[in-house]
Design a protein around this nucleic acid. Structure first.
Lengths: 198, 198, 198, 198
DNA sequence: GTGTAAGCGAGACGGTACGTCGTGTCTTGGA
DNA sequence: TCCAAGACACGACGTACCGTCTCGCTTACAC
């Protein structure tokens, strides 16, 4: 629940002057999250966010340089972000299917916003990196880890390439998401089966 | 080399008045293509395209409603668009690797633009559909077809799911592209091997 | 009733493209004039002018670079601007008094605006020059001319210095105006008497 | 060398708490004076003054409500402000010329700032009054007094109107100043001659 | 001494205004 | 009807000041 992108608050060193008002950050992130979910990323102008949040323009720019960064932070704070749910061990195939099904369930609410974040990432390299580090990489790591464990447990044939399979899994996920296709439990199962084999 | 998106030219019905100047369309598409490749999709304003093309604003809007549609058309015209290169039959695994390697080679030049098109597609549903129908689906179909043939030829185990594998292939491609990772011959081979098994 | 400051319309050469809409200029100048008269020069933001005029921001900047230039043009167009009322010849002292009394009468309505224009002129040299050339100098010239004629007619002693006396006249006017003091017929008479001697 | 406008220090009543730091006032006035002289009144934002002075924003607002008041105070402190130099008696015409020449000499350095103070006075009535009381009225009084004495001494014809002549003198001064015209010894002499007659 | 009250540097904060940019529609004159 | 040129309404942007506020600290005086 703590921010990563906010400017100048990297460390907790004591700074002179009036401290940033946490409520302002809170309101901005909450409003941004809500508006982006409701109307979509680029339909929402910055002015709308600050107006709804009842906050001054400068207060936003004091914290974030871009709408993208604000929204990224907002999503990170959001529960959607919980990433590290422990996966049940014995059945790795089922674990993967469940993990994917969970993510897909969240996309019902956040899919549009996630798509717009991916889109925004294509126009801004530093944002892309931040987005990758905080959202993409952790999830990919989880799957890669799971596949390695499955291989160690003999559930996945030793010849398979976990990194590649992880890219397959996330790729299939992104590909369908960005092409406006459905992502449901069936697809989660199908992907898991495709990875572990018939 | 013929346009699909251009407005009002679907049929060759006789219209009264002065006919559209094909050179204008040509200049617009060429300029759009060049500028987008050079500076990126959303760095290039429409004003810049018409200025460079030496064409009036209205002439553009007579043909396309959006920058996205123009650029889509421009890319469609471009050689990058050739999609249906015949695949050599006997070795399907190798055919897939070659097919991917070809695409990846084109991305060296067009990757950035393609990414921005995918990004633009996230904000505009009708554009997304057009983009999908003209760029995404054909290529996916090629791979699906190839996998089916490979299965028929016994090169791919019968238990495998060609549609899913096709999603894996394109997903891996998109995933790496959109995350700014390299796509080279090695990856093409690795993907093909991942699909056909070790 | 024709503008001097409007950009790019110095000559009546035929320009290609859609011509400027005279109604837009009209509305801008009228609104600017009214608002400045009512609320004072720097109390009126540009945004208020364009909002009231129902005109786009760019349309204003197409014509004038500054609020100052717009307002100056607006005042120039205004009847307040009529400057060259012919002065009755025989009685030069009375003519001067009448001329001043006329101006003072106009100040009842425009005094505040004139003060704010003078103030604005102090911050912007080019505006100051424009203001001087179009408003100040013509009036000073009238008085100087009148004094010369009076001198020729023997009404003003030959030893007097018309340029200086003209500066005295306008100076007294400005001095009282800018110091918030009254300017009425009595003062007009008093100034005229001071110039021509008892 | 003592301030008039500073808030809350009118009397020397004992106030509890830490007393104001005179050095802060000093630094503010000095910096304001210097910056305004160098770059002009409205080119200098308050932020620049406090930054240069190394003083906090609040410390300024503790003392003055406006940039205008601060600058007014700064100028009042400045040597330019010395107003009451005794005038030599016998030759009143020469005394006036000298008085004006002195003022004009100071304007070489302070003219721009004085103009901007006059400008600021047009937008703020209470400031206008303060400015008038401290800068304008005293000087006008000196001249009026001098003219009365000259009249008593028979140097100025009894029919002349000292108040009007004083307005002439200062008016001519302001008029030329605000219109960006030169003010030098020649003009001082010319004005004096105009007042006393040939 | 200790408490109280204000000054002080620093900087956040809600505002307001600014001038620029981009978009899609429109209105000229001429082809 | 097309075309080049450019005006137009609209809406968003990021910046600049302003005057107020809230921190933590310091400085005086009163008790």
């Amino acid at each position: 629940m703590q921010s990563h992108d906010e400017k100048g608050t990297g460390m907790t060193e004591k700074t002179p002057g009036r401290p940033r008002d946490a409520a302002v950050s809170r309101k901005l992130k909450d409003t941004a999250l809500r508006l982006v979910r409701d109307k979509g990323y680029d339909t929402v102008p910055i002015s709308a966010i600050i107006a709804e949040a009842g906050v001054s323009r400068q207060s936003l720019y004091n914290r974030w340089s871009t709408k993208a960064e604000l929204v990224l932070d907002a999503f990170y704070d959001d529960s959607f972000t919980r990433v590290a749910q422990p996966l049940p061990r014995p059945d790795h195939r089922g674990a993967l299917a469940t993990f994917l099904a969970d993510i897909f369930a969240h996309l019902a609410e956040n899919g549009a916003a996630l798509r717009s974040l991916i889109a925004a990432a294509q126009a801004d390299e530093t944002f892309r990196v931040a987005f990758h580090d905080r959202f993409v990489a952790p999830r990919e790591e989880i799957v890669t880890q799971l596949l390695h464990e499955a291989q160690a447990a003999g559930e996945l044939p030793p010849g398979r390439d976990p990194e590649l399979l992880s890219a397959f899994v996330h790729g299939a996920f992104w590909y369908r998401l960005l092409n406006g296709q459905t992502l449901d439990d069936t697809w989660a199962r199908r992907i898991a089966d495709g990875v572990f084999g018939p």
